[in-house]
Simulated scan of single mutants.
Amino acid sequence: MKERAGIQSVEVGFALLQVLGQARGPLMLRDLAAAAGMSAAKAHRYLVSFQRLALVVQDAASTRYDLGPAALRLGLASLSRLDAVKLARERMPQLTAQIDHTLALAVWGNHGPTIVHWEESANAVTVNLRLGDVMPLLASATGRCFAAWAPRDAIAPLLEAELARARRQGLRDMPATMSEVEASLAEVRARGIARVVEVLLPGVTGFCAPVFDADGHLALGMVAMGPAGTFDADWDGAVATPLRAAAVRLSSDLGWSG
């Protein structure tokens, strides 16, 4: 398809805004220009226009530049229109084709992590799960993912209840004490993804990758599951790697800086 004509100067100047958006704080002109790949004189001309539009401000004392109120208003407007689940659902078919296993989306509901979308692959696994089902915090990859990033005081009673229930039911590969729970959730945070192997459902392995919003809160979990015999359960394998990457990309699109 023929590339549509644009205004090159707008694209060039936008590099300055990108640099300011990624910087940890205000920048001197020389540093801002260098990071954007242009001369200080050229950068200054763009910055004068951006200041007139309130996209950029300059501190009178330090002479450093930073994003202005107009940039903030644009960012907030964009964030207010984002729907994490909608964006995730749009990406599911491609990810399903790549992973070739059943995918699902989960959000935190009134009673815990709740399945809100389901997409089966040709290599679908037969599971007794439905939309609206609430997943356990310790026996499922979805639950461990949410538990790893949830405020501890908010989920402590649920964790205690699940530990007691697991001990009564004799579930395999489950933490037995709160210290083991903390170690398990620390591993989830370190690896950036949660995993269970035939814990909740016999013969079924699952991963859940976290998606964060602009404030760093867990917006949803992207879940992959499949039969243990054909599902790559390696932490950096053919399922975990693309699932984690998709979650990171979606988080970035929602405004998360990582």
Rank of each mutant, 00 (worst) to 15 (best):
M1N: 09
K2N: 04
E3M: 08
E3F: 06
R4F: 07
G6N: 13
E11S: 14
A15K: 15
L17K: 05
Q18T: 12
L20N: 02
G21Q: 04
Q22P: 04
L27P: 03
M28K: 09
R30N: 05
A33L: 05
A35R: 08
S39I: 07
S39A: 11
A40T: 07
A40C: 05
A41H: 01
K42Y: 11
H44L: 09
Y46Q: 04
L47K: 04
L55W: 06
L55E: 03
L55F: 13
L55G: 02
Q58Y: 06
Y65K: 01
Y65S: 08
A70N: 00
A71W: 02
L74N: 00
L76S: 03
L76G: 03
S78F: 07
V85M: 08
K86M: 04
L87Y: 12
R91Q: 13
P93A: 08
Q94M: 13
L105F: 00
P113I: 02
I115S: 05
V116P: 05
E120W: 10
V127A: 11
L131S: 02
G132T: 08
V134S: 01
P136T: 02
R144M: 10
R144I: 06
R144C: 06
F146R: 01
A147I: 08
P151Y: 14
R152Y: 12
A154M: 15
A154P: 05
I155M: 13
A156K: 14
L163K: 14
R165D: 15
A166I: 07
R167K: 15
G170S: 00
L171H: 03
P175D: 02
P175T: 09
T177G: 10
E180D: 14
E180A: 15
V181W: 10
A186T: 15
R189T: 11
A190G: 05
L200S: 14
P202H: 12
G203E: 12
G203A: 12
G203N: 11
G203D: 13
C208A: 08
P210M: 06
G216T: 10
A224H: 03
G226L: 10
G229I: 13
G229H: 13
F231M: 11
D234S: 12
D234K: 09
W235P: 01
W235L: 04
W235A: 09
D236T: 00
G237I: 07
G237F: 07
A246E: 01
V248L: 01
V248D: 09
S257T: 15
